[in-house]
Design a protein around this nucleic acid. Structure first.
Length: 103
DNA sequence: GGCGTGACTTATA
DNA sequence: ATATAAGCCACGC
């Protein structure tokens, strides 16, 4: 099980209608410093459709700048389809939709 | 094995 | 409050 695999598993663990930040996924994967690795891992995205990268957002709740599905607009649409509401700033309400883990 | 880059995060000015 | 700097790990050459 490599770091990437762990990251993918964590991302797949993100429940429907919930979002997690890169740092959050990294922390759940094992180390909070894998934030960049998480981004790299999702960039590789070896299993599109299986890994809900659209549920992974920045710490601010904003969609990634170089989203692979077609653009941040697509990600926003997908999240909205899951019942996630965006603020006027185009960011996700992390205070309400952030994937609250068991810690 | 070493250097540079990257979908990030946190800290300081 | 925003802008800039440093740190982190993994992949590619």
């Amino acid at each position: 099980m490599t770091t990437f695999e762990r990251i993918y598993e964590v991302v797949r663990r993100i429940p429907y209608g919930r979002v997690a930040s890169y740092g959050q996924v990294a922390a759940l994967a094992g180390n909070p410093r894998w934030a960049r690795v998480v981004g790299y891992a999702l960039h590789a995205n070896p299993e599109p459709g299986v890994i809900p990268c659209h549920r992974v957002v920045m710490a601010d709740g904003r969609p990634a700048p170089g989203f692979a599905f077609g653009g941040p607009d697509v990600q926003k649409a997908m999240l909205e389809a899951e019942g996630i509401r965006f603020t006027a700033d185009g960011t996700v309400d992390m205070s309400a939709y952030r994937w609250q883990t068991n810690e």
